[in-house]
């Protein structure tokens, strides 16, 4: 209606950057397996991605470019979720850049910096959904599931982009860790959240206009984007690929029963040292496209509770 591609890209990049940071954070904490190759790349790309999104948003403002001094006012209204976002994003970009600098120079960053970056990343992802969820006059947005869905998608797309770029950053030393399992978990969780979201909208608890919006998405003009790009390309196809690859990586378990599962999968993954399989590359890109499609659907299918014209 009033918001178009710039906002869609902004929301998408906000989630993507936040997810990339959290991916490397998880890798650094060892949650993605021993010696994960994802522990640096996400830190490099997180802040720049969010910063690019923020700059795009400024371009979309009616007076953002012509009267840039007005932008300082963005810090003014503490009851506005958009103002919260300005604080959160500004803090995340600064902390993210610092963490990226520490990582680049191989210095150990203070724990408090790394941790606050993770908290701010989570806040960034949540904010992109909360911005919409508080708008009660758009029933399709007005649900607490919105920020949850956006965070899930942020993690999923952030992981995919980090995994996609890590071989370029780490060069020869790259090897796949446990991220396949994280991929599967995130996609399954996201599918459940999407089902809940669509269910809520169809059920009518958010009113007839929410039903209209969801109808546009699942059976109307955006059905191809929803079923094709978001559900198909963004969730189901990568899910099948990751499960397939996970199954294959488990095969050596039979031969090395005595070893721990993560050690064996690391061993199996060594075949892939230095680069990804093309299938993984395609499915990582596919996840990212799906994440973008989600933001586009949510913005484009927004119908106001009243059109401002029709009276009975």
């Amino acid at each position: 209606m009033h918001w178009h591609w710039m906002i869609i890209i902004y929301l998408f990049l906000g989630g993507l950057g936040a997810g990339a940071y959290l991916t490397s954070f998880a890798a650094e904490k060892g949650w993605l397996g021993r010696n994960s190759s994802l522990r640096r790349t996400g830190y490099f790309i997180a802040a720049p991605i969010v910063a690019i999104g923020t700059v795009l948003l400024v371009f979309d403002l009616g007076q953002g470019l012509t009267k840039p001094w007005l932008l300082i006012g963005l810090l003014a209204n503490l009851s506005s979720v958009m103002t919260w976002g300005v604080y959160i994003l500004a803090a995340f970009i600064i902390v993210g850049l610092l963490k990226g600098y520490f990582t680049l120079t191989n210095k150990s960053a203070p724990n408090i910096l790394t941790l606050s970056g993770a908290v701010l990343a989570l806040a960034t992802g949540t904010y992109t959904g909360l911005l919409l969820a508080v708008i009660k006059a758009v029933p399709f947005w007005a649900t607490w599931i919105m920020p949850v869905l956006f965070v899930a998608s942020a993690l999923s797309t952030g992981l995919s982009l980090t995994a996609l770029l890590a071989p370029l950053v780490e060069k020869k030393s790259f090897c796949e860790g446990r991220e396949g399992r994280a991929h599967i978990l995130l996609i399954v969780v996201e599918l459940i959240i999407v089902a809940a979201f669509v269910g809520i909208m169809i059920s009518g608890v958010n009113g007839p206009v929410a039903k209209e919006s969801v109808a546009l998405v699942i059976s109307g003009v955006y059905a191809l984007v929803f079923w094709g790009y978001f559900i198909g390309l963004g969730l189901l196809f990568p899910l099948v690929v990751y499960i397939y690859r996970y199954q294959r990586s488990k095969v050596p378990v039979i031969q090395y029963v005595s070893e721990s599962p993560s050690a064996t999968s690391d061993l199996a993954a060594n075949e892939q040292k230095g680069h990804h399989s093309y299938l993984t590359i395609v499915s990582d890109i596919s996840v990212i496209i799906g994440g973008f499609a989600l933001r586009a659907l949510v913005i484009l299918a927004a119908i106001p509770v009243w059109d401002g014209i029709t009276i009975l």
Binding site: M1, H2, G62, Q63, G73, S80, M82, A137
Partner: peptide, 10 residues
């Protein structure tokens, strides 16, 4: 006003 149009949705 910076012209963000947030109020038009709200």
């Amino acid at each position: 006003c910076i012209g963000c149009k947030y109020c038009m949705y709200a």
